[in-house]
Design a protein around this nucleic acid. Structure first.
Lengths: 183, 183
DNA sequence: TTGACAAGATAACGATCGCTATGCAATTGC
DNA sequence: GCAATTGCATAGCGATCGTTATCTTGTCAA
């Protein structure tokens, strides 16, 4: 049910799909929808929470599976499958954070809360002299990847999209290895 | 009229505001709206075209005004005013590209077309051995800035938002100066 | 077998959706 | 000075919006 709502919101945006559409995505009717969620907004909150937690778990999986080389794999995965897959299956960070930025403070607090897990998972997996440097790099990496995929998804020509991804990839890898500039 | 529609779309998203709302933003009625635009979608296209062109002109202005040091100023501006200003006045790239990524191929073609001007303006203003390297960096810089501002706008705590911006700033400056990694 | 309970279907509410047709008033060309 | 055109307001179209109340169905306990 949450997964179906997640697909709907990702594909159409919060305002672009109605409760009937979300319910149909789950192959039920709107009556059943309100059995699971108190409101459309509550459903969106559940989708954001689950989506961001999924990202955190995804990062942890890459670290466990690939060890020291996890970041190369992760970047390639994010700029490959996650860029070309159907929008309904896209990363929550990329597809949902713009909607969060238009939302209430309550929604932003929830987003921030769950993002803490993602940040820790990324920051713990990259190099840097200080904790702050690792967290700075983690924010930058996530911004670069999500922003890059959004831009790559916004152009019509697949070759252009691929070229953007290629540029992002180089920047992402050099970013994580770079010695941070003085503040 | 286009400016008013731009504010409305940025604040609420394409699906989050209706024609009546867009018309009210311009202090007219929906009848007048359809005197200017053939449809809601056509209005959005005009907003995207104008917004991206504004970004291109903004980059050119920074280059003319600040010369070799334009990028530091631009990054600070983008992560300062452009991050904290009201959503209605936000950068088109940050506020509108997620909607473009959910749009038709026609809309994406228009976006890609106008982005060419932004890319050239940025790529011509940064260093790099080859043209491709400059364009790669330009795409990465724009992704980093727009994605970073979106994330910074999605958290509830202003201090957290500022911390994100700080991390993005360091990454942006180091990105442009870095020697590009091998492909 | 019956009866309580849970889950989803159905139907309806007023409001708003994107859009069109028509009406009126000011401006324009001659 | 009158006619044609332009620019916006008004009103209304059927459809969909988010939400609630009611009804039906299925399940398991006693």
């Amino acid at each position: 049910m949450v997964a179906a709502a997640g697909r709907g919101f990702r594909r159409k945006g919060f305002g672009g799909i109605g409760v009937d559409g979300l319910a149909k995505e789950a192959e039920v009717t709107s009556g059943a929808f309100y059995g699971h969620f108190a409101s459309k907004e509550a459903a969106f909150e559940a989708v954001v929470a689950l989506g961001i937690d999924d990202l955190a778990n995804g990062v942890r999986s890459f670290r466990e599976l690939h060890g020291a080389k996890w970041l190369d794999r992760f970047v390639d995965f994010y700029l490959g499958e996650r860029r070309t897959c159907e929008l309904g299956e896209a990363c929550a960070l990329q597809a949902l954070s713009p909607e969060v930025s238009r939302g209430t403070d309550e929604l932003k607090a929830l987003f921030q809360d769950h993002m803490a897990g993602v940040l820790k998972a990324v920051a713990d997996g990259i190099e840097g002299r200080t904790s702050q440097e690792r967290y700075d790099k983690a924010w930058a990496l996530l911004s670069l990847l999500s922003g890059g995929v959004t831009l790559a998804r916004s152009v019509a020509d697949p070759a252009q999209s691929k070229a953007i991804a290629s540029g992002i990839r180089k920047a992402a890898l050099s970013l994580v290895q770079a010695r941070s500039a003085p503040t």
